[in-house]
Design a protein around this nucleic acid. Sequence first.
DNA 1: CCATAGTAAAAAATCGATTTTTTACATCAT
DNA 2: ATGATGTAAAAAATCGATTTTTTACTATGG
Lengths: 228, 228
Amino acid sequence: MGAEAATTNMTASQLYAALKRDLIDGRFTAGQKLAITVLRQRYGVGLSPLRETLNRLAAYGLLEQENQRGFRVPALKRAELDDIADLRRRLEGLALAQALQAGGDEWEAGLLAAFHRLKRADETPGQLEHWEQMHLQFHRHLLEPCGSAWLLRFIEQLHDQFDRYRRMAPANDTIRETLNLQHGQLVELAMARDVPAARALLEEHIRLSHEVARGACREDQTRPEEGD
Amino acid sequence: MGAEAATTNMTASQLYAALKRDLIDGRFTAGQKLAITVLRQRYGVGLSPLRETLNRLAAYGLLEQENQRGFRVPALKRAELDDIADLRRRLEGLALAQALQAGGDEWEAGLLAAFHRLKRADETPGQLEHWEQMHLQFHRHLLEPCGSAWLLRFIEQLHDQFDRYRRMAPANDTIRETLNLQHGQLVELAMARDVPAARALLEEHIRLSHEVARGACREDQTRPEEGD
DNA sequence: CCATAGTAAAAAATCGATTTTTTACATCAT
DNA sequence: ATGATGTAAAAAATCGATTTTTTACTATGG
């Protein structure tokens, strides 16, 4: 499977970041059981830091921890994606309204910069990983000054969950183009401090992404089976 | 400090529950650094399950994990309590509106039962731990059928955070009485499916609790100091 | 006298081995 | 032939010891 199997030793926080990204990127089969021994070799770490990382990721919601039966990659469930997307839409709507009221000059400057980097990444194909990073940073920056650390925390968590589906889904170039345009429009509405319009657009943006992400869900959704 | 230091061996999930409750109950000093060796003896467990539990609790937000410097009980910050309470109010408002639309007969029956148990606990002083449990179950049951597992998850998390402050705060019998009355009124409005009124009452309920919980915050809030 | 570098003690993190639990398989009884 | 029971292999969880990192103290130089 993976080509990222480095025997290089990693620190605990690096391991957490690496495993988290591999999960969101869909480098493990959904529903798959994770064999500790395999992971140990794959990431070149010992048991303790690995198990601690798995525990953290389970608490975060990117892994499922079964009683005394180890860890498992969560299955992709259409109903759960709908839940995640709906909630994400509502929470980001709240956060955006507050961000537009609270964001200052410094924030505007940063937003323009983040958008610029994202647009550059749009135009440069083949750099998927870089685009993903710029995209995440753009959305993060947009809501940053909303004033609620906990709201931002939950939004980030939902975003990670959502991305796991989105990145599993087949590409849709038509929608993708619209989504890219919306980023620019979001910047304009944000600078104009047009709360209702910006909020409506962001919610529409998430709805469209939701449509794309749905492609990750198999139609037959009645399988409590193993994934290996 | 603790009188719950049992040398009895515990399973990992029991340890998680015990440590979580001790944190929410305020049995550790806020801001305190947790010495692994001490915890090992206090709960009668080995290193691995203990460290895994600490990692989970840190991911959940009930502990802070510093780079290579172990774990620390988060300080009680007034600004954070305000954030938690405000967000809790908004999220529970959302959830209640949906729950009133979706809840069926079975839910109504369970709500009445949960309220009954809570009222019994109100009238029986000295059983603080039991009351806390009934109180949590009542609020949990109220929002249960809202239809969003992730929303419920976040609400639970905020509730735990909030309770850590509330249980540190000095008792306020006047407000406490009002809060108890509101539980009954909530049941009535919920059964009547009066969404706006129920929602307004629940939000007021949280606002009042917030006032009480504020008593946990020291007035001088400019101390990044050690706590031991 | 204060600051800085070095050193020793303490704490945290990691490792490899042991113990416990689960799962798969085969045997026996119905 | 099917289901239940016991056994062996595999996997997960836990333990105690080792290694690494941090912190507190001391001595030395400015």
